[in-house]
């Protein structure tokens, strides 16, 4: 009983992180930064959610372990591929009004000149 309540609380915190991730996706100014919110806050959200479910239903531990492993491996991979494709089609990560730099675009231009 105590474990079930604890599990429910942890799952609640996990879903809070998922909520923050979705708020981040709306609030961030460009696609790269939306991806930052979508990848990170949702990873911990899902992991906490799995932990909470695992505490409530002890028969599901194995499945949840495999699931969290897959989330940890595939979540960063997919966001990496999206970011790479986005840069490849020429979207600059620099925003108007922020002082920063883009090493990848600089190096690409250098390679084309050679």
């Amino acid at each position: 009983m105590v474990l079930e309540i604890l599990g429910a609380l942890i799952a609640l915190i996990g879903s809070l992180f998922l909520l923050l991730a979705s708020i981040g996706i709306i609030r961030m100014p460009d696609t790269y930064n939306r991806m930052q919110a979508g990848t990170k806050a949702s990873t911990l959200g899902s992991l906490l959610f799995f932990l909470g479910i695992g505490l409530g239903h002890s028969g599901l531990w194995g499945k949840l372990l495999v699931l969290s492993l897959f989330v940890l491996i595939t979540n960063p991979l997919s966001s990496h591929v999206l970011a790479r494709a986005l840069h490849f089609i020429g979207k600059s990560p620099l925003l108007v009004g922020y002082d920063s730099r883009d090493d990848l675009a600089d190096d690409m231009n250098q390679m084309e000149e050679l």
């Binding site: 981040g24 930064n33 922020y98 675009a105």
Partner: peptide
């Protein structure tokens, strides 16, 4: 990231290093 998201002005300075 969660803290950045809920601040009124999002503190970012994006770039590729």
């Amino acid at each position: 990231v969660a803290l950045r998201v809920i601040k009124p002005i999002i503190p970012i300075r994006p770039g590729i290093v």
